[in-house]
Amino acid sequence: MTLSYPLAPEPDDFARERGRKLFAGDVAFLKGVVAMDGLPPPDRIEVCFAGRSNVGKSSLINALTGRRSLARASNTPGRTQEINYFTTPGGPYLVDLPGYGFAEAPVAVVRKWQALLKDYLSGRQTLRRAFVLIDTRHGVKSVDEEILTLLDKSAVTFQVVMTKADKVSLKDREKALAQVRGALAKHPAAYPEIVLTSSEKGDGIETLRALIASLE
């Protein structure tokens, strides 16, 4: 019996090298966007990273790019209120979306950036894949279901990247994977492979680099 939503396989040498080259170049911050009319020209494909506050999004982007402070992490959940664009040399834009869920910000501010998030996901034609980050310690929560449903409605292919895999035991990791697989079965836009990562240990980073480099 084939396992639904298996872990993404290790890349072969060619794919690993292509991913390494993409992220070995000068990856740079381009701009922070607070409204749709501020988005850069759709002159290349892009991938975005979405996840609830404190899921480890900034740490993952920093691990991918090999730069400790390219994406700035905040100790305050929900602090990032912009869509942050990064350029890769000859490759796609990397797009860091505002954290969703709990936020220490005024209600009106939260609503504004949630609306921006929805507009972006449903209206950006050059978006090739959304990577939705799920904390391995917690699995898919109700607030994650909202974003997954939005991606279904927007017909945006999304792939789950499980973060902080090193923070749980092997037994608990398997429980989390089973819970995530069950949740993904309800979402037609879900890409049929999961990437298991640890930004601290480097696990899964080569796999994710190779996946991004393969998109066209």
Rank of each mutant, 00 (worst) to 15 (best):
T2K: 09
Y5F: 13
P6M: 09
P9G: 05
P9I: 01
E10F: 07
F14Y: 15
L22A: 10
F23R: 07
A24K: 11
G25D: 15
A28W: 02
K31F: 05
A35K: 15
A35D: 13
L39W: 15
L39H: 08
P40M: 00
P40C: 00
P42R: 01
P42L: 02
D43R: 11
I45T: 10
A50I: 09
N54S: 10
G56Y: 01
K57Y: 14
I61F: 09
L64V: 06
S69C: 14
L70K: 09
N75C: 13
R79T: 05
R79S: 06
Q81I: 00
E82F: 14
Y85T: 00
T88G: 08
G90F: 06
V95I: 14
Y100E: 01
E104V: 13
E104W: 13
P106D: 07
A108Y: 00
L117G: 00
K118D: 03
K118V: 05
K118G: 03
D119I: 07
Y120E: 08
Y120G: 07
Q125C: 08
Q125P: 14
R129G: 06
F131G: 12
D135E: 01
H138E: 08
K141A: 10
S142V: 15
E146T: 10
I147S: 00
V156F: 02
T157A: 15
F158K: 01
Q159H: 13
V161L: 02
T163L: 04
K164L: 12
D166M: 04
V168Q: 04
K171N: 12
K171W: 11
R173N: 09
K175C: 08
Q179I: 02
E193L: 01
I194E: 04
V195E: 05
L196H: 06
S199K: 04
E200G: 02
G202W: 07
G202N: 12
E206M: 08
L215I: 11
